[in-house]
Design a protein around this nucleic acid. Structure first.
Lengths: 344, 344
DNA sequence: TTGAAAGCGCTAACAT
DNA sequence: ATGTTAGCGCTTTCAA
């Protein structure tokens, strides 16, 4: 067991005091250049590595930020996490992750643990949880918290926490407008978790586009699916096989989209001849499918970066001039899956 | 700022000494039940939360393990990370991640940082890096390291580190055997990074199957692609459009598989009539594609769990009886993308 | 069983 | 500019 080199050893070897070493190593303020140079030299020679634990105990800052996420293995979350991690790392922070699988107990446990570990800040990317209370509670504590794509509005209606928001409303509106412009009048929005922000905003944008175009709102069909793909497929079969079936659909992400495409195929509906399709989120599937699926896209990297940036502002103490939110735009990527309806 | 409750406050409030509180809170050994009960009661009432930093400084164990991974946003890695995290969390460890993007500098930086933070153990999931030296170096240090799906053999040929290995060889062999059994004689293996373990093993299994079947080894075509999908598609176009084109392909993962499928379509080759396809890795695309793609599958959860388990054994100090490796099996999931070749 | 006291390695007052 | 000293909050000898 190679004895660890402490600041004390360096001091001894360099023939100076502990504090001089500390000063020389951090910034080098209030130290003569000569000593600073010596100390650094000796430190390197001895292979000294500062002990973050000890430093943290003293400075009351762990240099770590936590990331509470429902499921890191979800590619969307994973990308966000990676982007945030990169930016935080640049700033010298380590990121610790906790996948909570939407289990309120694990979420609470993680939150507690984060507190105990003295994490300097926390990123919260809740899943479909009804467990909002936990992060709301977290956010009301002393450590800065940034929320990802969830409503930063308190129950009392007003207090807000810093948040990174994606403009799902604008995206859905653009997609709907596009389809309406193509001549569609019966459009279905397939989404999930209607009570969570992303879907709620989409639904709002969807309806706004209908209103704006003066189209019959009855043509705006909602199909909420919180169930796995197989069910989604069943639901979609019913929807697409029904009496007044939509001539276009806007379908969420990988699983619902996949279910819808499969359902369409099973019913002998050809895309885009019989059915126009827009994907919410630009997944591999959307890009690779034949025909390639027109999609709403937003940058997950931006989400991660923005979240990290918002947090860093607070960690630096720029609370005064720190922004409290970032709104990220959504683009409509036109591909081959939409066309004018055949029989309107 | 709510003053943090320390063990000292609890001692004072309970009218006992610091050490009694500590003892009562940890295990309760050498403490009278009465005091233990009191202390716990008081601690709860005061909302005491132990400070892991201080404890770590004292015990020289941070209760954290690091995870060095090339890219967490890769769904494969993400799933592994999540599984490992879950298991480690159960055991009371926090996981800190570092995405290194295969950049040796960042990898080294992360490794150094991990050391400075006194992480108790490290999981290393290298990407396509030629930067093996770093984790080899890491692994030769004092903190336990578990390697994921990379050769745990030292340069000198013998020393081995604990590792979780996937039986890519067996998988490739099974797939090849299956295709040979169907009557195929010209089969192409599309993979990447031939010098890394996974591909190397696959290639070996691929060849073994040919040898075992007494098939002409010239029919075993190798196509190494380390480039992104677009290129992959170009390469595949050339391969499939060529003179003696393979009647079956075994294609790696999402991107290469997607490129191959698209190339096949562009060439008017129908799957499985004109071309049989096996996916290496059971991705969304493989499952959802029409026809559904026969795939080699291994459990990423198992990989993560096994890695965590191997590490935990060492962290518990069971070095004597700790396994040094885990070999995970690969299954062939039969679907609709393979058939006998039309003109052999 | 209990308490007093000594640190873990570091930073930050406070002196000089 | 430099050194001395006092802790950060906890665990752990060592006495009692």
């Amino acid at each position: 067991m190679t004895r660890v080199v402490t600041i004390r050893d360096v001091a001894k070897a360099a023939g100076v005091s502990l504090s001089s070493v500390s000063r020389a190593l951090n910034g080098g303020k209030h130290v003569s250049p000569r000593i600073a140079r010596d100390v650094i030299e000796v430190a390197k020679r001895l292979g000294y590595r500062p002990d973050f634990l000890a430093r943290s105990l003293r400075t009351r800052s762990s240099g770590m930020v936590g990331c509470l996420v429902s499921d890191v293995s979800n590619p969307l979350n994973a990308t966000i996490v990676r982007a945030a991690e990169a930016k935080l790392r640049e700033a010298g922070y380590l990121m610790v992750v906790a996948s909570t699988a939407n289990d309120p107990n694990r979420e609470r446990a993680a939150a507690d643990e984060f507190r105990g570990r003295r994490l300097d800040g926390i990123l919260v990317a809740p899943g479909s949880g009804a467990n909002e209370t936990i992060w709301r509670e977290l956010a009301s504590g002393a450590t800065p918290v940034v929320i990802l794509d969830r409503d930063p509005i308190g129950d009392d209606g007003d207090p807000r926490w810093p948040a990174v928001l994606v403009d799902h409303r604008g995206g859905a509106k653009a997609a709907t407008r596009y389809l309406l412009g193509l001549g569609h009048r019966r459009i279905a929005l397939l989404t999930a978790d209607a009570h969570m922000r992303p879907s709620r905003e989409r639904i709002a944008g969807f309806r706004e586009a209908f209103a704006e175009a003066g189209a019959d709102p009855a043509g705006a069909q909602l199909c909420i699916q919180s169930t796995p793909m197989d069910f989604a497929q069943g639901d979609t079969l019913a929807l697409l096989g029904g009496e007044r079936r939509p001539t276009a659909i806007i379908a969420l992400g990988t699983r619902i989209l996949a279910g819808a495409l499969r359902a369409a195929r099973d019913l002998g509906l050809s895309v885009p001849r019989d059915l126009s399709v827009v994907s919410v989120g630009d997944t591999d599937l959307a890009a690779i499918h034949t025909p390639a699926i027109t999609a709403l896209r937003w940058s997950l990297e931006h989400v991660g970066h923005a979240a990290a940036e918002l947090l860093l502002q607070r960690l630096r103490g720029d609370i005064a001039q720190a922004q409290s939110r970032a709104l990220l735009e959504v683009d409509l990527v036109l591909r081959e899956s939409c066309a004018a309806p055949r029989c309107s």
